[in-house]
Design a protein around this nucleic acid. Sequence first.
DNA 1: ATTTACTGATTGATGGATCAATCAACTCTC
DNA 2: GAGAGTTGATTGATCCATCAATCAGTAAAT
Lengths: 195, 195
Amino acid sequence: MTRPGMAEARRRALIGAALVEIAERGSLDVTVARIAGRAGVSAALAHHYFGAKEDLILATMRHLLSEFGEAVVADLRRAETPRARLSAIVGGCFGPEQFHRATISAWLTFYAKALSAPGAARLLRVYQRRLHSNLVHALRALVPVPEAHRIAAGIGALIDGVYLREALVGRPTAASAAVAVVEDYLDTQIAGHPR
Amino acid sequence: MTRPGMAEARRRALIGAALVEIAERGSLDVTVARIAGRAGVSAALAHHYFGAKEDLILATMRHLLSEFGEAVVADLRRAETPRARLSAIVGGCFGPEQFHRATISAWLTFYAKALSAPGAARLLRVYQRRLHSNLVHALRALVPVPEAHRIAAGIGALIDGVYLREALVGRPTAASAAVAVVEDYLDTQIAGHPR
DNA sequence: ATTTACTGATTGATGGATCAATCAACTCTC
DNA sequence: GAGAGTTGATTGATCCATCAATCAGTAAAT
């Protein structure tokens, strides 16, 4: 059981357990003991690998963020036209791995944490900037550059808002409805501010 | 100092202190002792008036919510045309009392709490429904009813999203920029789906 | 034998909640 | 109008649970 080379597997397991725990509880009031227990190890081991609890939480956040980034990049690769690229980004945001009750819950929790933890805020800003620049890049082929920035900001806010609302309703909503709201925004904005 | 009739004043003071404390900390990890201290009373008194800490938090939330509702209603009264009513609602959402760093911080905190506290979720849903019905009421004079619902949902999400992003940026942003994003959405949506 | 992986036990701090006791004002006598 | 109860407001002290973090020590692999 204690053979060498377990370190990475344990780290992954702990991050995964933290994610599930946070999502299930819908809050960052999770104990190291519970996370470790879910990962099948002792609380002491979690501290051994991550140091403070805060570091484990941040690592979990980073994991979620990078997973999301990869999903969007993968979708982007399959798109040819600028308009298709926009749809790919939006679709990536609401893909099945992202637009899932537990994941949404975790996202909102991290946002809340960012209010009081500068490290968390920094991570989220990185994600926002990346999304923004992806959107602008695709939009500038369709609308004037200043408009592209404005629309990208709107899309970013709209996506976050849709997530927020999704987190609040008890029952799960179809991702397609969420996508439709954002796509409609895109369509009318592009039509309203032609190049 | 300890004359009868202090109850209401104390309740108000405690709620106000809780609000400031939550906003300043940017989190619900506030202690009863700190809140009470800020209100100039002992922690025991806070328990005396509100029972559990949870109840004090919920009362604070209710306070914020009703304050917001009143601001919107006041703005609505001054509007004549449907379009003006829409602007009034949006303006109310981003009025100086609402769109303030501390208040925004408190809002997001409450949203996060709603993930794990059904009582908080219920309160927020009431606010969302009220906003939605206000928007639909004004919109139905301008666009077909199904569109009105869709646009209202979009506006609601967009407002929440703008708040979310505002909470994250370190520096304070002008409310006018936030209003502009939402107003632009309104304009293009109404123009894009005429009655 | 040394390194790597791991744990149980423990500590120290925090914080919610409770309770018995005080204090000030008001009311009801006689 | 001076005590004698009554009630509401308030607090300090205390209890109890939770939890992050540490540490000393065990077990396995090399």
